[in-house]
Nucleic acid binder design. Structure first.
Lengths: 351, 351
DNA sequence: TTGTATGCGTTATCAG
DNA sequence: CTGATAACGCATACAA
């Protein structure tokens, strides 16, 4: 059953395709009488515009590509993708997703697909390699990096990790904690490419030290555990956080609070603590980062929320501005913020 | 920077567009000499086929639509979507996603978008309304229901919920549990439309009773809690499971095991149990369903895994068969299976 | 083995 | 106010 075309509608209404197009876009002059006839014909035939033909004609597909790290591994990515899609929808756009799984080669292939599909712009959450982004630039397709900067000169929307992390530290300090551990990403392992800004990892670790210093607490290297957030190959479980936490609990003077800078890491931490027969938050407090798994963990996790909705929405809007305006507007970093739940409490055993 | 066209490649190679097309699709006869010239021209110009133009010409967009309930709420949906996308990729296809959030009206609008984009087929995980699917059929676009059947006469790939659920029940019984509670979806609240098959909820509840009967255990209505899995409006937290579990724990003779037929429900159950100061699995065992949140919960959850990868992959393959063969092949129900982790143990306090 | 020509469904320009 | 007509980039039937 072939779908109706403009031509068929025109014939049925006894007008030309140009006239049908005019009533469809409600621009240009059309007499009310013919307009009614055309609208009747449209209804009668169940005509639906062909976006493919329009894309070819207008040299614009009303489609963007969204390159993601691994949508099934960290819920952060689904959320950003979802809200970008939602914003796109409201502007007549659809998005294509692609997961590079941390492999530069896959990222390149994904970008090639995007180019073939003639997407009007590409969002990266997160990019891997600058030379891949360059493929887009060569093709005249605007690119925008969300959250993490992997290539200089490519526009981006960053997150202010510092505000939220500082709130978390202040919160713990106010609860009387002084032995606060940090479980987070290792800048050297995670950061790629170059950037004029500090990496996400540097920001979070920096805020940890800043918070410590503000409270007059000396940093204890034993309390600082750096590594990967999760292994994509291992399916994204919290095993990394589990291992770090076990090591922390084995310390002669174990921490009374743990700041894990990813909910997945925090999930592993909670498992380790539980296994040791300790209770959160009575024996030890835990703060996460992202606000993804948080509500589903036991106990519900106090965590630093990332602005995932705004990241996605602003991401699309900015890309659209680049498509239409030719230039990509600057966007101020989006703030993170602490969300209080049930995994933090007044410090006990503080010596 | 406009992208190169076949025409430009042809001119550069001193041949016609037809010849370039021939070497591109490596069909038809092309002399080695011209083939080399054309390939050189392709490389030199950085030519990339225009999928939009091809789509118009071939009356095939190499794109499918995937209608989802709510991708950010239940990780089940991301996983199915991801694997369908992955399989699609391997066949030169891309997918468009759309979340209807449980609203029939949104589903209709999403389908209209799919039709305008001229997708070659649509996957539903899960459909809401049969009359919406009919829009596709009228447009000559194959539709396929995954996991849940909401419309008769529309092809589907189902999951055998019974096998896995029976394994779970047998597992609990073997551990000595006799007071086993069921926390799950209410067929009357969740099932929509009509189907020749029992609903997912009926299958799971049926297996519960079957497992009970096989062990010679009388079903206790107090142990059976039915409702929604989660509220999309409430952001998909495990609050439903939390409430049911609290009620179960208040019972004079509380259960020693809970079979929650969704990991989100189980997450809420774990929170309730924790809040009451009981330990899983020592004081009470918990089994979930889906294998989504399971690895990240505390303790890691024993759960009935759904075949999400196969559902997605088989979903796309079957849709492709429908696109190319005109008819949609039957697919046998995909099995679910129990995955053992750390939330189940030998029953204590069994009177 | 290669080239020519036509049309896929729109939109946009131009003339009437 | 309306209608012809020409692309958009590609694939294919048909000629040569």
């Amino acid at each position: 059953m072939k779908s109706t075309t403009l031509m068929e509608v025109a014939q049925r209404a006894g007008v030309s395709t140009a006239t049908v197009a005019r009533v469809l876009k409600s621009n240009g002059y059309v007499s009310n009488e013919t307009k009614d006839r055309v609208e009747a014909a449209i209804k009668a035939t169940g005509y639906r515009p062909n976006a493919v033909a329009r894309g070819l004609r207008q040299q614009r597909s009303f489609t963007i590509g969204h390159m993601l790290t691994a949508i099934t591994v960290n819920p952060f990515f689904v959320n950003v993708a979802h809200w970008a899609e939602e914003e796109a929808l409201e502007h007549g756009y659809k998005t294509f997703l692609f997961n590079h799984n941390g492999e530069a080669d896959r990222e390149r292939r994904g970008i090639e697909r995007f180019i073939e599909r003639r997407v009007d712009a590409v969002l990266f959450t997160n990019a891997i390699a600058g030379e891949n982004i360059a493929l887009l630039t060569e093709a005249g397709i605007p690119a925008l990096q969300l959250e993490r900067i992997r290539a200089v000169g490519v526009p981006s929307i960053r997150v202010d990790n510092r505000v939220g992390a500082l709130q978390a530290m202040r919160h713990l300090v106010e609860l009387g904690h002084r032995r606060i551990a940090f479980v987070g990403g290792d800048h050297k392992l995670i950061h790629r490419g170059e950037s004029p800004y500090p990496s996400v990892e540097q920001e979070r670790l920096g805020a940890y030290h800043e918070g410590l210093a503000a409270a007059g607490i000396a940093a204890d290297p034993d309390y600082q555990r750096l590594g990967l957030y999760y292994s994509i190959a291992e399916g994204g479980s919290g095993i990394e956080g589990y291992r770090h936490t076990m090591a922390l609990l084995d310390l002669p003077n174990r921490p009374t609070a743990i700041f894990a800078t990813c909910d997945i890491l925090a999930a592993g931490a909670l498992q380790a603590i539980y296994e040791r027969g300790l209770r959160v938050p009575n024996d030890i407090s835990v703060v996460g980062f992202d606000d993804t798994l948080a509500v589903n963990l036991t106990p519900q996790l106090t965590t630093v929320a990332q602005p995932m909705e705004e990241l996605g929405r602003a991401g699309f809007r900015t890309a659209l501005a680049a498509i239409e305006g030719g230039t990509c507007p600057e966007v101020a970093p989006l703030p993170s913020r602490l969300v209080l739940r049930r995994s933090t409490a007044i410090a006990t055993h503080t010596n």
